[in-house]
């Protein structure tokens, strides 16, 4: 790890000013930043510690929606009764992520900005070619081992998976990311790699996430997160799905549904086709399985990750059934 300067920001303004310097990086829980600094992927010259900023870790759950301060830790949000009751997908996505220790450290803001686990990205010494890390150098994954790489949203420049869980739940629930400058809908927040995989979100230099706002909807209150992986715990998703489901008063007709996928795409992946195919339809297993197949429309395999194209629709279907009380 290169050496760096360290300072503790005492106000948001100060943090934003400091963060505008080239070479400056914000530090929240540090579980992504320090990890990547050790691999020499991140090379900060100055680290600005946000964690002591006042007022950025509150969680408010109200009638119209919830606001979660960017510095709230994953564990605090997961343990919040209001979140558990009104946004179960959020609580579940957090509890299924990382480990208890990491969840105590990691913040909600930092969590959204975690970087890919692509092994080539994380190994600059072994793989100088990585467009995401060093733009224009090529992609070591393409033509290599790709079991954990994306099948959706890829480009010829990068096929890395967005690894996080929370952002998938937030996508399904239509969250908004608030920064010191603006509010950004989560759909617009994450970018596909295209020709610029190094740019993963629309955040500008010096822009700081301050909170995440989630609207209160019946669908959010009846939401769930399903994560599939080889190891029972402490592992990223092979595929995951977040589903919010609202039924008509008849208890079987789908009034509204929102679905997002994780572990298979370059960003948290809304499955709008699945939603459209199910809105107004009857909630039964056959219909759900049929509709879930569209979740991977346009998916492209790179060999080792082909199984994800088969797996993802099953995960979506089961998550929808689970949200609908069909176990």
């Amino acid at each position: 790890m290169m050496n760096f300067d360290y300072s503790r920001a005492t106000s948001l303004e100060e943090a934003a000013t400091l963060a505008r310097h080239p070479g400056a990086m914000l530090l929240a829980g540090g579980t992504t930043l320090l990890d990547l600094a050790k691999c020499e992927v991140a090379r900060p010259e100055r680290v600005i510690d946000l964690t002591r900023l006042p007022g950025l870790n509150t969680i408010t759950v109200g009638e119209s929606g919830a606001t979660i301060g960017a510095l709230a830790t994953m564990s605090r949000v997961a343990d919040d009764h209001g979140i558990q009751r009104r946004y179960p997908a959020i609580a579940e996505s957090l509890l299924l992520a990382a480990s208890a220790q990491l969840r105590n450290m990691a913040t909600i803001g930092g969590n959204l900005l975690q970087r890919t686990r692509c092994p080539y990205f994380r190994d600059p010494a072994g793989y100088p070619a990585c467009n995401k890390r060093d733009p224009g150098t090529g992609c070591s994954a393409i033509g290599g081992i790709t079991r954990d790489h994306a099948v959706l949203g890829t480009s010829d420049h990068c096929i890395a998976v967005y690894p996080g869980d929370l952002a998938v739940a937030l996508s399904a629930l239509g969250a908004t990311i608030q920064t010191n400058l603006r509010a950004i809908e989560i759909e617009a927040f994450f970018l596909m790699p295209g020709a610029t995989p190094e740019r993963e979100t629309v955040l500008e230099r010096g822009e700081i996430i301050t909170a995440i706002a989630v609207p209160a909807t019946p669908l959010a209150a009846n939401s769930t997160y399903l994560k599939v992986r080889d190891r029972q715990s402490y592992e990223f998703a092979a595929a995951s799905a977040a589903v919010g489901l609202e039924l008509d008063s008849d208890g079987v007709t789908i009034r509204d549904i929102r679905v997002a996928l994780g572990g298979i795409a370059t960003k948290p992946w809304r499955a709008i086709a699945v939603e459209d195919a199910l809105r107004g339809r009857r909630l039964d297993e056959g219909t759900v399985r049929e509709a879930s197949r569209t979740a991977v429309d346009g998916a492209k395999s790179h060999g080792g990750n082909a199984y994800k194209i088969e797996l993802a629709p099953c995960v979506v279907a089961r998550a929808i059934l689970k949200a609908g009380g069909i176990q």
Partner: peptide, 24 residues
């Protein structure tokens, strides 16, 4: 951050000392 061997408590919470800066 992948094994938990470095677990300590900071302000009563279990965390990983390998991904925490001492100054922090």
């Amino acid at each position: 951050g992948q094994c938990g061997a470095c677990t300590v408590h900071v302000d009563g919470q279990r965390v990983l000392a390998c991904l925490t800066l001492a100054v922090q």
